[in-house]
Simulated scan of single mutants.
Amino acid sequence: MRKSKSFSARTLDANALKSFAHPLRLRIYELLDERGPATATGLAALLGENTGATSYHLRELARHGMIEVAAGMGRGKEKYWRVVPGGFTYGDAPPDAEAASALEVLLDDLVRQRGSELARWREGASRAPAEWVEASGFGRRSLRLTVEETAELRDQVLEVLERYRTVADGRQAEAAEEGRDPSTGHVVIHFDVLPLGAVPEDEAAGQEADPAGQEAGPA
């Protein structure tokens, strides 16, 4: 979710970072992103929480512009919530120590989510429609590049992702009025640029040599 400032995603400020770095809010956002609009009651059932708790966390996410009420859905006072189109970025490490700590939590959760999604696809791909399997792909490249080339590569890939994000956002707006297009699916793109060569050798070796000293992350 980190990206160059030349792209349109909103950068979360320190207060938004601190608010978002909450296990239940992260899970609520993840469910809304994956499944589409939902009510506090529906989310409570999925999460094994009470409606009061999910309502509170939904309001907090909305207060920081992460989600919004899905117009035209629900009856009476019933509210459906959806992820705000356009996406967001975490940006650079903030000077505020509490916000910087929250950013670490969010980045760790991003790594967890990526691992979970990769494992889910590997386990379930054999049951997916053939056309979706053929359209999917795994990729890894190990390259020797300069700092400038690395930044250029990152930005070029993000430009492509931005183009398709715009298409998806427009489709999301149409779905609110006309219903979801059955030919579309929830597609996740993982993209990382990791200059591992910039990590000092002794630090990397120390981490590998002492796995028992590393605190286990969330499953």
Score class of each variant (00 low, 15 high):
Lys79Glu: 15
Ala71Glu: 14
Asp96Arg: 04
Trp132Thr: 11
Gly179Val: 06
Glu178Pro: 00
Arg112Ile: 08
Ala168Arg: 10
Gly48Phe: 04
Tyr80Ala: 02
Lys77Met: 07
Arg165Ile: 02
Ala93Arg: 15
Gly74Asp: 06
Ala97Asn: 11
Ile67His: 00
Arg127Val: 06
Glu178Gly: 01
Gly139Pro: 02
Arg163Trp: 09
Gly115Ser: 08
Glu131Arg: 11
Leu110Asn: 12
Gly179Glu: 01
Thr54His: 05
Glu134Gln: 10
Val105Pro: 00
Asp155Pro: 03
Tyr164His: 15
Leu107Trp: 03
Ala102Pro: 00
Arg180Pro: 05
Ser136His: 12
Thr166Arg: 15
Arg163Ile: 02
Tyr80Cys: 03
Leu118Trp: 02
Asp92His: 11
Asp96Cys: 06
Arg82Val: 12
Glu78Lys: 14
Asp169Val: 02
Ala168Val: 07
Ala70Gln: 00
Val83Asp: 01
Ser142Trp: 02
Arg140Ile: 10
Ala99Gly: 07
Ala53His: 05
Asp108Arg: 11
Ala125Arg: 13
Arg140Glu: 13
Met73Pro: 01
His57Gly: 01
Asp109Val: 04
Arg63Ile: 04
Ala119Arg: 10
Glu149Tyr: 07
Glu123Cys: 05
Thr89Val: 08
Phe88Ser: 06
Leu61Ile: 02
Glu117Thr: 04
Glu149Lys: 11
Ala175Ser: 05
Leu107Met: 13
Ser126Lys: 09
Ala135Gly: 08
Gly91Arg: 01
Val133Trp: 03
Ala130Gly: 05
Leu103Pro: 00
Glu152Met: 15
Ala176Glu: 11
Ser136Tyr: 00
Glu104Lys: 15
Glu68Asn: 07
Glu149Met: 12
Gly86His: 05
Glu134Tyr: 06
Arg154Trp: 07
Phe88Lys: 03
Ala71Arg: 15
Glu148Leu: 07
Val83Thr: 12
Glu174Phe: 07
Val157Leu: 09
Val69Gly: 10
Ala125Gln: 11
Asp181Cys: 05
Asp155Phe: 11
Val111Ser: 12
Lys77Ile: 13
Glu123Ala: 15
Val105Gln: 12
Leu153His: 10
Glu178Ala: 14
Tyr90Lys: 04
Ser116Met: 12
Ser126Tyr: 11
Asp92Lys: 12
Val147Asn: 06
Tyr90Arg: 09
Val69Asp: 09
Gln172Asn: 12
Asp92Gln: 13
Leu58Tyr: 00
Val83Ile: 10
Ile67Ala: 07
Ala173Asn: 03
Gly74Cys: 07
Ala130Met: 05
